[in-house]
């Protein structure tokens, strides 16, 4: 999907307030994301994820839930290729990211949009340049970058703050910036870690609406959250973690 269509598609979702989950839909049986008996330990520490296996079909939307410390962020770090599993295998888009060369691994990364729990924005760049960066890494033309970035920033309510540095933005504004950066290049997979933690309810719904509209256009989506109201608002199957184990996988 070309980036240009993003904000319009997102806007359409917000206008139509229809329930977004489609229970009973038959997912593509070929997992676009597949984890097989994954374990993760940080350095020489204890294992924090144990024997995780699941697959996310292409174009699916799942919630990732679990109490604090359950391992949601750790799982997202695996899916964003920020960590390598200490056991088990991962398959992304049919490829094993731990079995390909560095350039191929980075190319896989460019197809994954990540909203980090701590945003991870570049402090010395403006809001505009933070959002434009994935497009620049993808080698887009500067004219297309300018148009898409400006449109998306306007859509997340930061039109007036394009030239602002992240430190001068509120927590909620930074979160919207992080979401805009994750979606701007039209990734195939979006993983978001508490993407609405710093937003008020109206903004949370609006931003989640953006992510869900991308899912409806074919992007695979996994969102970690504690926010049960939001889950009710956007019903979808859930991966539930507890103490580093997958305890429930409905849907």
């Amino acid at each position: 999907m070309p980036p240009a269509s993003l904000p319009l598609a997102a806007g359409a979702v917000v206008v139509s307030r229809a329930p977004l989950a489609r229970p009973g839909k038959v997912w593509n049986s070929q997992g676009m994301v597949r984890l097989d008996d994954i374990g993760l330990r940080y350095g020489r520490g204890p294992e924090v994820l144990h024997g995780i296996s699941f697959s996310l079909p292409e174009g699916s939307f799942h919630w990732l839930t679990g109490p604090s410390g359950a391992g949601k962020t750790s799982l997202i770090r695996l899916l964003s290729l920020t960590e390598r599993p200490s056991r088990g295998t991962i398959s992304l888009f049919g490829r094993n990211p731990d079995g390909v060369g560095r350039n191929a691994r980075q190319a896989l990364r460019r197809q994954i949009g990540v909203v980090y729990q701590d945003f991870r924005l570049l402090g010395h760049l403006t809001a505009f340049d933070n959002v434009a960066l994935p497009l620049r890494l993808a080698g887009e033309r500067e004219a297309a970058i300018a148009a898409n970035t400006a449109e998306l920033l306007a859509w997340v309510g930061l039109a007036e703050r394009m030239a602002a540095r992240p430190v001068t933005l509120s927590g909620g504004e930074q979160q919207r910036l992080a979401i805009a950066r994750a979606v701007v290049a039209g990734p195939r997979l979006i993983v978001a870690d508490e993407p609405t933690g710093d937003l008020d309810e109206r903004q949370a719904e609006r931003l989640l609406g953006l992510l869900v509209s991308l899912h409806r256009n074919g992007t695979t989506l996994l969102v970690a959250t504690h926010n049960e109201r939001l889950i009710e608002r956007f019903p979808a199957p859930r991966l539930a973690l507890s103490h580093g184990r997958l305890v429930a996988q409905d849907g």
């Binding site: 980075q106 190319a107 990364r109 197809q111 991870r120 924005l121 402090g123 890494l137």
Partner: peptide
């Protein structure tokens, strides 16, 4: 930190 972020966005080593 910035290098890790840009690397995380998919910048190649060469870039």
């Amino acid at each position: 930190e910035d290098l890790a972020i840009v690397h995380g966005l998919g910048a190649s080593d060469g870039w």
